[in-house]
């Protein structure tokens, strides 16, 4: 009797659990379904049936117009260039600094680490005007240098790498050093290969962060030929398109901005998860 009741209760709570999961999966994913569906609609169709994911007539005209009628191809190119350069630079420079802070003994190490912790607390939004000021003063405002140089390192990345290097045993490096390898050789051919999982996490965080970066491009450049994809997309939305709402076109452009990160996410989900949790530990 009691056992039946508890079994029924377990069944009910399992059902409730799945209901909650499926409901929220819909809430979190359906907007993306709507986004993709409506990007293949004609404008009147998207306006009349915004909830439906299936176009009445399948149309790629939004994508044709976005590629032929806007500067999006240039923005896409800029985004690819900036993302690749920044990601490679961040992985290299952050891991070098993280290694030095974890393993090398040099004067001022503690001071640098404290400064790094302080820097991590500086919120990006209060740096808009300051960044513009310094770019302007250095004469590099509105250039690729302005888009790339200020973001090729990030304090949080250094922190993640430092934590990682402190977690791996020092013995292998010592062996290499005793064999007479210099610091840089040891780092390059012994330490980096061991750090592959951390480097992959760092690569993914850097890629995602740079690809999605918006406010930095807002204060670094003003020439549409230098816009990255998020900046160009924001520009399209704020009315550079002219007549009509043109939602299929805007949604199509947003789909293009989402695809690269979506692919990386599908392939490397566990590294994203690790990255999010590393982020929580720095607090």
């Amino acid at each position: 009797m009691a056992r039946d009741r508890s079994q029924a209760r377990t069944l009910a709570s399992t059902f409730l659990g799945y209901f909650v999961l499926v409901f929220f999966a819909l809430v979190f994913l359906y907007p993306f379904v709507i986004q993709i569906g409506n990007s293949f609609k004609t404008e009147p169709d998207a306006a009349a049936n915004p909830l439906s994911p299936v176009p009445e007539v399948f149309s790629t005209s939004a994508y044709e117009r976005v590629f032929l009628g806007t500067d999006l191809p240039i923005w896409l190119g800029n985004s690819v260039l900036v993302t690749i350069v920044v990601t490679v630079a961040r992985v290299l420079l952050n891991s070098m600094a993280g290694y030095a802070l974890a393993r090398l003994r040099f004067g001022g190490r503690k001071a640098i680490f404290s400064a790094l912790i302080a820097v991590m607390a500086v919120p990006g939004v209060v740096l808009f005007i300051p960044k513009f000021l310094v770019l302007n003063q250095l004469g590099i405002y509105n250039s690729y240098t302005a888009l790339i140089l200020p973001v090729i390192v990030d304090a949080a990345g250094v922190f993640i790498m430092k934590q990682f290097f402190e977690s791996i045993p020092v013995s292998v490096e010592e062996a290499a050093r005793i064999d007479g390898a210099g610091v840089f050789r040891t780092y390059w051919s012994v330490v980096l290969p061991m750090a592959r999982p951390a480097l992959l996490t760092l690569t993914i965080i850097a890629f995602q962060g740079t690809w999605n970066e918006f406010p930095h491009s807002l204060v670094a450049v003003q020439d549409p030929a230098l816009f990255t994809l998020p900046r160009g997309l924001a520009d399209l939305v704020s009315g550079s398109l002219g007549v009509g709402t043109q939602y299929p076109l805007k949604l199509g452009a947003a789909v293009l901005a989402t695809i690269p990160v979506a692919i990386i996410f599908l392939v490397f989900q566990r590294y994203f998860v690790r990255g999010a949790n590393e982020g929580s530990e720095k607090g």
Binding site: A25, P31, W211, N212, A234, L251, A257
Partner: peptide, 30 residues
């Protein structure tokens, strides 16, 4: 007791990794 953990975890987490600008465009439409 529930299965499909990885899928649901991914589904709930996915919006966090996408571009804030792109998502804002979607919500303008929605």
């Amino acid at each position: 007791v529930l299965k499909g953990k990885t899928f649901f975890r991914g589904a709930f987490f996915f919006p966090s990794v996408t571009s804030s600008v792109a998502i804002s465009v979607v919500f303008l439409f929605i």
